[in-house]
C-alpha cells in the first residue's frame, strides 16, 4: 500500500517522523512530480534552438500555466472558473499600465499584474459562497463585465478603452521568453507544493465533503479563497507575460472567453488533480490547435466540444487517469507474474 504523501508540520511528534520525511522525497510520487517540473522547464528552455517560432512556444507555456491555474481551482476545489480569462486580462492590463504609467521594468510590471489579479480575486471572494454552477456562471459574467468595463470608451484615459495597448517600447523577445519559462516553472511548482501542503489536504477534504471538512475545523471559505487567489495570480502573471510578448493588443485579445475555454479543456483533457495532466493537455491540444485550428477554427471548436463531452461523460480523470490506470494494471500484472 502506498504511504500517504502528507508531510506534516512537526508538532512535537517523535524524531522518526523527520527521517520518514526524507525517505518520502525519494518515493515514486515525488519523483514523478519532480520530473513534471523539470522536464517542461528544461525542454522549453532549450526549445528555441530547435524551433524558431518563439511566440508559439511562449503561447504554449502560457497555456500550460493557465491550465495549471484551472487545475488549482477546479482540480482542488471542484469549482469551475469559466471566467478565468478575467484575471488574465486584468493581469495584462495591470502590467501594461504599470509600464506605461509607472515606467517600471517589464519584469516588475508583470509581478504587479499578478498582484492586481490577486487583489481582484480577493474582492470577488463573495462569489465563492455560491454553489458550483452559480459560481461558474458568475465568473463568466464577471469576466464579460471586466471586458465591457476596460474596453469602455468612457475609460479611454485610463485604459485606452477600445483602442488597445501599445507597449512596443519595451519589446524584448529574449526577456519575454525568459519570464515565460519562469512562469511555466512557477505554475507547475505551485501545484506540486499545494498538493503536499495543509492547503492541499484541506482542499481535497472540501472537495469530498465540505460539511465534514468544516467539522474537522477547516474554514471552507478561507481555504477556497486561498486557492482562488493563487489561481488568479497565476492567470495575472500569464496575462502580463502575454502583454510583454506581444506588446500591441486590443482588449478583445486578452478577454476572449475562448482563452478560459482552452485552459479548461486542456486541464480536463490532461487530467485535473495531477501535476502532469494539464501539461500534457496543453501541449497536445494547443499544438493541435496551432497546427490546424488557426485556419479552421470551426472544426477546432467542434473537436473541442466533442472532447469535452466525451471526457466529461466517460473519461473524467483525463489522459492522466488513463495513464495511471494502465500503469496500475501493468504493475498488477508484474506482481502477479512474480508471485
Amino acid at each position: 500500500m502506498d504511504r500517504p504523501t502528507v508531510i506534516d508540520t512537526v508538532k512535537g511528534e517523535p524524531k522518526e517522523r523527520q527521517r520518514f520525511v526524507f525517505k518520502q522525497l525519494l518515493k515514486r510520487k515525488n519523483v514523478v512530480d519532480l520530473l513534471g517540473l523539470l522536464i517542461p522547464v528544461v525542454a522549453f528552455s532549450f526549445a528555441p534552438h530547435f524551433y524558431s517560432n518563439e511566440i508559439l512556444l511562449i503561447s504554449m507555456m502560457i497555456y500550460i500555466a493557465l491550465a495549471q491555474g484551472v487545475n488549482v481551482i477546479y482540480g482542488l476545489t471542484g469549482y469551475l472558473p469559466f471566467g478565468y480569462v478575467g484575471f488574465y486580462g486584468v493581469g495584462a492590463y495591470g502590467t501594461s499600465l504599470a509600464i506605461l504609467d509607472l515606467h517600471v521594468a517589464p519584469e516588475i510590471a508583470i509581478v504587479i499584474g499578478g498582484l492586481v489579479s490577486a487583489i481582484l480575486a480577493l474582492v470577488l471572494t463573495p462569489l465563492l459562497k455560491l454553489s458550483g454552477s452559480y459560481f461558474a456562471i458568475a465568473t463568466l459574467a464577471t469576466a464579460e463585465a471586466l471586458y465591457a468595463l476596460i474596453a469602455n470608451p468612457s475609460l479611454k484615459n485610463i485604459t485606452q478603452g477600445p483602442y488597445g495597448i501599445n507597449i512596443g517600447a519595451v519589446y524584448s523577445s529574449g526577456g519575454s521568453y525568459v519570464v515565460a519559462v519562469v512562469l511555466l516553472g512557477l505554475s507547475i511548482l505551485t501545484v506540486v507544493v499545494i498538493k503536499r501542503s495543509r492547503l492541499g489536504l484541506a482542499l481535497r477534504a472540501i472537495r469530498n465533503d465540505p460539511v465534514s471538512a468544516s467539522l474537522s475545523g477547516v474554514n471552507v471559505v478561507l481555504e477556497r479563497t486561498k486557492a482562488w487567489v493563487v489561481a488568479a495570480a497565476i492567470a495575472g502573471l500569464a496575462g502580463g507575460v502575454f502583454a510583454w510578448t506581444i506588446t500591441i493588443f486590443y482588449p478583445s485579445a486578452v478577454f476572449d472567453i475562448s482563452i478560459s475555454v482552452f485552459a479548461i479543456v486542456f486541464a480536463l483533457f490532461g487530467g485535473v488533480g495531477t501535476t502532469f495532466g494539464p501539461i500534457v493537455g496543453a501541449v497536445v491540444l494547443y499544438g493541435l490547435y496551432s497546427y490546424i485550428g488557426v485556419t479552421q477554427p470551426q472544426y477546432f471548436q467542434l473537436i473541442f466540444g466533442v472532447i469535452i463531452v466525451i471526457f466529461v461523460l466517460f473519461l473524467p480523470k483525463g489522459v492522466a487517469g488513463i495513464a495511471n490506470a494502465l500503469i496500475r494494471r501493468f504493475r498488477m500484472r508484474t506482481i502477479r507474474e512474480e508471485a
Partner: peptide
Amino acid sequence: DPEMLSLILFFGISQILEAIVTI
C-alpha cells in the same frame, strides 16, 4: 455533482452546436 457535470457537458454541447451551425 450532477449540476456541475451538466454545466460542463452542456458547455461542450454548446461548442458543438456553434461549430456545426457555423460550418
